[in-house]
Design a protein around this nucleic acid. Sequence first.
DNA 1: ATCCGTTTCTTGACTCATTCAAGAATTGGC
DNA 2: GCCAATTCTTGAATGAGTCAAGAAACGGAT
Lengths: 143, 143
Amino acid sequence: MGNADYEQLLRGASLRVTRPRVAVLGAVTENAHADTETILGAVRERLPDVSHQAVYDSLAALSAAGIVRRIQPSGSVARYETRVGDNHHHVVCRSCGNIADVDCAVGHAPCLTASDDNGFVVDEAEVIYWGTCPQCQAAQGKN
Amino acid sequence: MGNADYEQLLRGASLRVTRPRVAVLGAVTENAHADTETILGAVRERLPDVSHQAVYDSLAALSAAGIVRRIQPSGSVARYETRVGDNHHHVVCRSCGNIADVDCAVGHAPCLTASDDNGFVVDEAEVIYWGTCPQCQAAQGKN
DNA sequence: ATCCGTTTCTTGACTCATTCAAGAATTGGC
DNA sequence: GCCAATTCTTGAATGAGTCAAGAAACGGAT
């Protein structure tokens, strides 16, 4: 994806096209599940003098527009990804915090309908799998 | 549940029985989904001079022992509940942050097995339903 | 019942992700 | 190109949660 594509995405969502936003979109695309600090670093490779505030603002605007998704497993800082709208979920490593994508297996949609919703109008079901990643399994085996 | 029951729970988990822990367990039991500040207040009704640190430590110890569960939906501070081990989930209101319990419908266990776990050893699947609670629906309707 | 080593609690300072605020710069419709 | 609205810069503030050192409480052993 080039900047032209990112600009298209922004215009398509009726968002103003600003250099920080384009850079943030690029940084999030190339760094799936990255936290804000990592994104800030990646953005500054493209645009050295952005303020951290511009990055926070851009991430908030992009999230509100549905172009990026914000994820924040317990105990973690906010992380972002651009893969949106495909109902995929995440596996989080309890020991190192690494996150990997998990496709939602077909035929399982019913499990995402609450059995008794207490009167809530539910618009999204988020699934987080907790476990141990391959690297940490290996590291624990050695100890 | 009286304090004697809480003491039993603690001993059963090989945890020392201290007044802060008993009070925290009582506070969490009576305030499902409460955040740390609320729990601190409830604990001080039972034990006026506890330090916030003792409450943090107790919550951490109880969580580690599996007696309480820590939940933290995106954008929220940590919250706690005593209903553990029954695989129930939560509905969170996007507008006011309220949380309600949702029983896991029977027969749906398969949906909590990741289709491709990327080599992770998964030990828990957490489901959060996002939506709008009845109160906020009513409030929005009026505006 | 008392003692002692270990764990836990108190006190108080500190971290750091995120937010707030005011003024300057940029954006995009006219 | 101009102007109003939005967004960005700069810098300070917030607040949940953590860290650290010494004091107190717990509970197994005597």
